[in-house]
Amino acid sequence: MNTKKVWFVTGASKGLGLTLAKSLLKNGYRVAATSRNKQALMDTIGPKSSHFLPINMDLTKNNDVREAIEATVLHFGQIDVIVNNAGYSQIGTLEELSDEEVMTNFRVNVFGSLHVIRNAAVYLRKQQSGHIFNIASIGGYTGNFAGFGIYCSTKFAVAGFTEALAEEMKLFQVKTTLVYPGYFRTNFLAEGSIQTPANPMQEYKSARELEQAHLNEINGNQPNDPEKAADVLMALSQQENPPVHFFMGEDAYHYARLKIETIQKEMDAHRHLGLSTGFDHQ
Rank of each mutant, 00 (worst) to 15 (best):
W7C: 03
G11E: 09
A12N: 09
S13L: 09
K14H: 10
K14D: 11
L16Y: 12
Y29I: 02
V31H: 08
L41I: 09
D43Y: 03
T44I: 01
F52A: 03
L53N: 05
I55W: 06
N56G: 08
M57T: 15
D58C: 10
R66W: 07
R66F: 07
I69E: 01
E70D: 12
T72Y: 00
V73N: 07
V73A: 07
G77F: 15
D80K: 06
V81T: 11
V81K: 08
N84G: 03
N85A: 07
S89G: 15
L97N: 11
E101R: 05
V102S: 07
T104W: 00
V116M: 04
A120H: 03
L124V: 09
K126C: 02
G130C: 09
F133G: 11
G139A: 12
G143F: 11
F148M: 11
S153H: 03
S153P: 02
T154A: 06
A157Y: 11
V158T: 04
A159K: 10
F161L: 04
T162V: 08
M169K: 04
L171Q: 13
Y180R: 01
T186E: 06
L189T: 09
A190E: 15
E191I: 13
S193T: 14
Q195C: 08
N199M: 02
M201P: 00
E209R: 13
Q212D: 11
H214Q: 05
H214E: 00
I218Y: 00
N221V: 12
D225F: 02
E227N: 15
M234F: 12
S237W: 09
Q238S: 09
H245Y: 15
M248H: 05
G249R: 10
A256S: 08
A256R: 12
K265S: 10
E266P: 00
D268Q: 15
H270E: 03
L275E: 09
L275C: 08
L275A: 12
D280G: 02
